[in-house]
Design a binder for these strands. Sequence first.
DNA 1: AAGTGACCCAACCGCAAAGCT
DNA 2: TAGCTTTGCGGTTGGGTCACT
Length: 317
Amino acid sequence: MGRAPCCDKANVKKGPWSPEEDAKLKAYIEKHGTGGNWIALPQKIGLRRCGKSCRLRWLNYLRPNIKHGGFTEDEDNLICSLYISIGSRWSIIAAQLPGRTDNDIKNYWNTRLKKKLLGKQRKDQQARRGICPKQEMKMEYENYSANECFSLYHLPPQPGAAPPFSVAYGTQTATHIKGQESLTSNLIAQFGERFSCDHHDQQPNYTGLINCSNLYPSDITSSTCTNLINSTWPPLMSDYYAINGVALDHFQETNDIPGELDEVIINGNINPQQLHGLENFSTLVDMVSRNCTSQEICTWGDTSSLVYSSSISSYEV
DNA sequence: AAGTGACCCAACCGCAAAGCT
DNA sequence: TAGCTTTGCGGTTGGGTCACT
């Protein structure tokens, strides 16, 4: 037996909304509100629509002060920063962009920004490596798709700033600190004295990232970091790791991810069952453990990561 | 002008979380 | 607190439009 449908599919109209339907829905909600029950709303108005469809139409289109299209460079940069930081959490990203809907941002990312980002990477890599553009595009697209859920942006080490095999992170909660300490102890167990840890405790204004930014290169500007903090704090808590100046991202918000990483790298062994979605991390750990240079790690990072810099907006879509 | 493919975006779907009884 | 309902979210789809041949 399957899941019960949310509405009577047979009597529900699907597809594009007519101006009449829009007008009915808008007028009703402006006068009475949603009544806290989207499912019952269409019957009240006399619309042959699913409640979910009404909700979506209102939130994405009819609601006041909605902006469509015409994304500014600032918005582009913020979306990129947030995507790199928190991934495809469109509702959270949309909350930082007044008047924008999660659906709009998602569409904009999928159809334009992603290409913009890849376009920049391709240009950079072609210039450095002289690889055939077509082959390069294919490689990058495949790598991008495979790694999208675990994005990692490489940052060349600042001269004199990052000690060998250092990890830096910021934390918010005790649970996180516990998980991170566990991760840290595993890294120490694996890498011994070659690994050091720089831990920034919880601060109301979340200075952890700023401290970590000491490990970051000059093209990630302090304003980018500040934007990131301002836009994600307080709703998000984030953990930031960097190894040899290579920042690992997406260890945010969930308490279990550091635990997963623990399981991946514990005792230096890779647990295949825990590897799904964490391939980049294990590769990185492997490279670090083989004493690869920062340069090599960054080169690897090039082909399997998103690279964001504040100059991205100068590239054409 | 017609055909074709790429692109864009509104809308749908299914799942998980949150809320309610 | 278990079970049901509703809401919110992210991934995906499909139809309209545009650009190119």
